[in-house]
């Protein structure tokens, strides 16, 4: 098998697994959690396009995520758009906002870029919570965000909605895989490794950076919209910087720069949070401890660690 066909096979396998789980195996109380894992997996896969592939450390992705949520809520509830059109618009909105932020912020690199995106994210947080009340519902948020209805099928139940998120997830994962393997993806990765050389080869590096950042924003917008639909709710609280921190943690936890790392990271993060909080009131500290240990002792995240173990097992 070539790399590409293997990738497609694995993706389809993951999606198929989700579908099977949705229809049969999973206990009803785990369904919402699985939905959430897939939504955050979309977010993290998109985040890694900017972070892992292009090396752009953003602390403002929560803003694109939040914009997606509000776009979906407003377009479906007020403008009465069909769900899929609103979902697409949420993605595009996230992408456009990311392109605008990237266009301005990408004159900076490294930690300064991170700080600009952080400031920008917080700006959006305050705007959404305190100033754009007519559009965001202020601190109370917007409740009653709908679930999709497609081909006469109502996705109001978490079980059916898991099908929906699985399909969206599979499509976006495949797109991400294609993008990484494409000449465009190669150039972007090249820019991360050696921007000067790529510049000298005649590529306009900043355009590539802005483009990949916009794609990453598109993923965030879609994920935000799905999350709002999943929880029937959009609130400014998801725009706070901690959401950007969460997606960064997921990506690094799973393994930045790999296709499946962010997916594994999102799953590990959400499951850990859910399981630990059932076990003990002290779960917050435990989560922090686990995260610190993984970061120190497994540099490539869970995927990197697993890879090393496999290699050791096969001398």
């Amino acid at each position: 098998m070539t790399g590409r066909t293997r990738l497609i096979a694995v993706t389809l396998l993951v999606a198929a697994l989700a579908v099977v789980l949705a229809l049969t195996g999973v206990g009803a109380e785990r369904l919402l959690l699985l939905n959430l894992v897939l939504v955050y997996a979309v977010f993290a896969v998109g985040y890694d396009l900017a972070f892992g592939v292009a090396g752009l450390l953003s602390l403002g992705h929560a803003a694109f995520f939040g914009l997606g949520a509000y776009l979906l809520a407003n377009l479906t509830l007020r403008a009465h758009w069909p769900f899929e059109a609103a979902l697409l618009a949420a993605g595009i909105g996230g992408g456009v906002l990311a392109a605008a932020v990237g266009g301005v912020a990408l004159r900076l690199t490294g930690i300064f870029f991170a700080l600009v995106t952080l400031a920008f994210g917080q700006l959006c947080f305050i705007l959404a919570g305190n100033h754009l009340r007519a559009w965001t519902g202020g601190l109370d948020g917007i409740s009653g965000v709908p679930r999709p209805v497609l081909f006469g099928l109502d996705f109001a139940s978490d079980r059916l909605f898991l099908l929906y998120t699985a399909v969206v997830f599979a499509i976006l994962l495949l797109v991400a895989a294609r993008l990484r393997a494409s000449p465009f993806g190669q150039v972007v990765a090249g820019i991360r490794l050696n921007p000067v050389r790529i510049e000298q080869l005649g590529w306009r590096t900043n355009r590539f950076r802005v483009a990949i950042f916009a794609v990453s924003g598109f993923y965030a917008g879609i994920a935000g919209a799905l999350q709002a639909s999943l929880l029937f709710f959009a609130s400014p609280q998801i725009i706070e910087w901690t959401t950007s921190g969460d997606v960064l943690i997921m990506t690094v936890l799973g393994g930045a720069g790999t296709l499946f790392g962010p997916v594994v990271g999102a799953a590990a993060f959400e499951l850990l949070r859910d399981e630990l909080s059932r076990l003990t009131d002290r779960w917050y500290g435990l989560l922090g401890l686990v995260f610190v240990l993984v970061t120190i002792f497994a540099p490539g995240g869970i995927m990197g660690g697993a890879g090393r173990l496999l290699r050791r097992a096969r001398p």
């Binding site: 206990g27 109380e29 785990r30 919402l32 929880l231 709710f233 609280q237 009131d281 779960w283």
Partner: peptide, 19 residues
Amino acid sequence: DSEGKPQVTVQKAASRIAA
């Protein structure tokens, strides 16, 4: 523990309702 957050509140409630 809702952490005081709408998302976590809905997530945990949905899980308990389903159970």
